[in-house]
Amino acid sequence: MTQPQKATEFSQSIRGAVAPLLQVAGLAKSYGARIGCTDVSFDLFPGEVLGIVGESGSGKSTLLSCLAGHQRPDQGQILYDGQDVLAMAETERRRLSRTDWAFVHQNPRDGLRMGVSAGANVGERLMAIGARHYGDIRAQATDWLGRVEIDANRIDDRPAAFSGGMQQRLQIARNLVTAPRLVFMDEPTGGLDVSVQARLLDLMRGLVRDMGLSVVIVTHDLAVVRLLAHRLMVMKSGRVVEQGLTDQVLDDPQHAYTQLLVSSVLQV
């Protein structure tokens, strides 16, 4: 695999030069007495990839679903491009989620329409925003299948006939076809074989760089964030215990929990 872009340089150059795309302050969500996540704050800049790591139950998935609007947080503020997301009308939020935003699920079955063809899966977002020329839609779907390394002659096959890795790449194509600015990813490599994971990661890294995407990616796999994320947030029991530039956090972890994570996983 190629060397990751020098995260420190990128993040430092972008920060301070432009306004953040996503600003999160004091976000909290609990389930009765149990804390989902609490006191989460961060800024995400255009073109920046933020990794959120922690073991299962650490609150990283709760946080992601609050950010993406799937759950409503109990407290806190989320500003997207300066707009208060939580104060938005649902119309506006749903418009965002089919144009500017995208969400890649861990299980591709949750993000795909399994009953319609690959072409229709990719074309749906285009049609949702008004595309009405069958030939154009099909051409764009073909192009995107190529970009995620799916043979164009599979365009009329249903995703059920695809392997897990292909389904995940199809889900990515379906999400990126409208050129969103902000992508949420929930364990996108989970459940895939190691060799398939490597290919997918490589593909994602290329797309993120070429399209200048801002990404929030949740994973328990430190190798994934090492490769993709500019910045890193470590969560435990619903709280952020450490955050900073990915290389710094992984090479010189400050918090005892992060040290434990790094020592147990990265030596592989």
């Binding site: 089919r98 319609v116 229709a120 749906e124 049609m127 069958y134």
Partner: peptide, 16 residues
Amino acid sequence: LEEYGLMHVKLYEDIA
């Protein structure tokens, strides 16, 4: 919300 993309997905599938 005037979200009618799904309707065209059906028509797309027919043509495909």
